[in-house]
């Protein structure tokens, strides 16, 4: 698996849409004929991807939002690697 670079800017893959679903009480990732139910932290990370912000900036935002969470940056990088390997993001 390729490592995520902190200065990279990532976006959802074309045709993929992140959306809050009240009836499921969670974020979902919608794509052609499919839907991935996301846990809360996956939703927080993906909603910050806009193709402009760098991964480092996204981590900063999350650290500000959840101060004192140990290993947050490593968790974000690991999640983004998985998401990219699954072709959810590019």
């Amino acid at each position: 698996m390729k490592l995520i670079e902190r200065e990279q800017a990532l976006a959802l893959r074309r045709g993929f849409r992140l959306q809050w679903e009240p009836r499921q009480d969670c974020h979902v990732l919608l794509y052609p004929e499919g839907m991935i139910t996301l846990n809360a932290s996956a939703g927080w990370v993906l909603e910050l991807l806009d193709g402009q912000r760098s991964v480092a900036l996204i981590i900063d935002r999350l650290v500000q939002r959840f101060p004192g969470v140990p290993g947050l940056d490593e968790d974000v990088l690991a999640f983004l690697e998985v998401a990219r390997a699954k072709y959810w993001i590019e």
Partner: peptide, 8 residues
């Protein structure tokens, strides 16, 4: 309103 998200 019932929660449907995918529409074909």
């Amino acid at each position: 309103a019932m929660g449907a998200a995918q529409l074909g």
